[in-house]
Nucleic acid binder design. Structure first.
Lengths: 117, 117
DNA sequence: CTCTTGTTTCGACATTCCTCTATGTTGACG
DNA sequence: CGTCAACATAGAGGAATGTCGAAACAAGAG
């Protein structure tokens, strides 16, 4: 799992990243660095706050095998971007906005803080 | 190079990404999905608006060979995140904030637009 | 011109990643 | 209990990536 404080705190341009933070951040960016995972993330996040998506809705949207989609979902989950729950036969995924917001703050902080005036 | 309009427009959670946008965005995330490149990007962006960094300052910060650093800088440049200029013996790099800001907007738009509330 | 220094490019190799098929697990339904 | 459907895991093959040393290139000094 990805530590939350390491995602939100320093700011890209606030100061040079140390190796630990860089490695931590890179995992999230790497998780988003694949077109399939980006589309999966978008499809899940499009459901909004309490929204969920069934895997049976995600899989047919791609020209990929079901295990491949399952694999990408696992990587997104390991990055802390989504979570899932089994309900009966089906498994539902939803977005965890914290890490995503942390990344966005990390990027925007880069151009506003630290450098200042 | 990465098209600017495809980075800034849709919003991650505004609607499911189509393949073209996803492929375009994924290149940028992939460029940031390496600890070395993330640290390089941070070191360069830390210089602020008109700031520059010489390669000779970047290389000794890593336990990597100079060609490896040059390779990573090339990838960041191909992603549209930085640019460089040779001045005399040395080459100076600076950050191009547009793509970075576009990514940040793309991520934040995800949790504010479309969903409402 | 030659030598030295800084940087990029070129091949090569080890590792990681994406995808597949095959198999396992979980729960619903007779 | 047996079977079927949805999803996850395991293992393998091929492509992409990170790294290096060697070589090429650029620019200044002597």
């Amino acid at each position: 799992m990805i530590g939350q404080e390491s995602v939100c705190c320093p700011g890209l341009a606030a100061a040079p990243l140390d190796e630990d933070h860089a490695a931590d951040l890179a995992k999230v960016f790497k998780a988003l660095g694949d077109p399939v995972r980006l589309r999966l993330m978008s499809m899940i996040a499009s459901r909004g706050e309490g929204g969920e998506v069934c895997v049976c809705e995600l899989t047919p949207a791609f020209d990929l095998s079901q295990p491949t989609i399952s694999h990408h979902l696992k990587l997104l989950r390991q990055a802390g971007l989504i979570d899932c729950e089994r309900r009966g036969t089906w498994v539902y995924y939803w977005a965890l906005p914290d890490v995503l917001e942390g990344i966005a703050a990390f990027l925007t902080t880069s151009r506003t803080a630290g450098v200042g005036a």
